[in-house]
Design a protein around this nucleic acid. Structure first.
Length: 221
DNA sequence: CTACCGATTGACT
DNA sequence: GTCAATCGGTAGA
């Protein structure tokens, strides 16, 4: 796989329909805070991915926080390796890692050297749905980005974006919710899915009632 | 080099 | 609900 050339600068012209006005990317200061707060506030935010094959946009509907301390499920608990180095870098970068032959996307939070991150677990596709369908070889919109590795496939996110600066509005970035902010009562909270330790920590956040959230139904309401 | 492991997924009962 | 394929990363010989 060859690396992508820089193909866009913020703001992106002509790529978005008129009813989806572009917003500036979330700044580094958004990510430079407590990881749990960031995880909760990322629900409802938008994710933009501009690659050679075009643009894809979605709404984040599910996240999980991974803590710097006291969290045995966090990849950083046993120190820095080449794989998790992005978690130890500045906030506002992507941390993309592989698991079970697939990729997962995190946003690094907290000050540099405090290894915490938010896993993006599910996204509601908004734009570029046909593109996602081709990448996933799947029709059902609900399943295109419902799951951390599914969304990476739909948005063409892999190892090349590990360490990517999300605050610059190029290739991969997040923006505020242009609609009414998600009210507190629509944000659900539960233990994290799939982890083999630290079950007791309720660090998963999701848009309550959304069909685009992963997990069994009882973890979507 | 080999021997695991896993923040998953898709197929199946 | 169960189960195994998947492969990059890590640790250790």
């Amino acid at each position: 796989m060859s690396s992508e050339p820089p193909i866009s600068e913020w703001p992106i012209p002509d790529l978005l329909p008129a009813d989806l006005p572009p917003e500036p990317p979330l700044p580094q200061s958004f990510y430079d805070r407590d990881v749990v707060q960031v995880a909760r506030e990322l629900v409802g935010k938008r994710i933009y991915r501009l690659s050679r094959s075009g643009i894809a946009v979605g709404r984040i509907v599910e996240t999980e926080a991974y803590l710097a301390a006291g969290d045995s499920a966090c990849h950083a608990t046993r120190g820095m390796t080449r794989k998790n180095a992005s978690m130890f870098g500045p906030p506002g970068r992507a941390y993309v890692y592989s698991i079970h032959a697939r990729w997962c996307l995190n946003t690094v939070t907290q000050p540099r050297g405090v290894p915490s991150a938010v896993l993006i677990r599910a996204v509601q596709p908004l734009l570029g749905i046909e593109r996602m369908q081709r990448r996933r070889n799947l029709e059902r919109t609900i399943d295109l980005a419902r799951g951390p590795s599914r969304l990476c496939e739909a948005f063409q996110i892999d190892r090349r974006l590990d360490g990517w600066d999300l605050s610059r509005g190029r290739r991969l970035w997040l923006t505020p919710d242009p609609d009414v902010p998600v009210p507190d009562h629509r944000i659900g909270n539960s233990p994290r899915i799939g982890v083999t330790s630290a079950f007791e920590l309720c660090l998963r956040f999701y848009l309550r009632g959304s069909e685009y959230v992963s997990g069994p139904k009882r973890l979507r309401t």
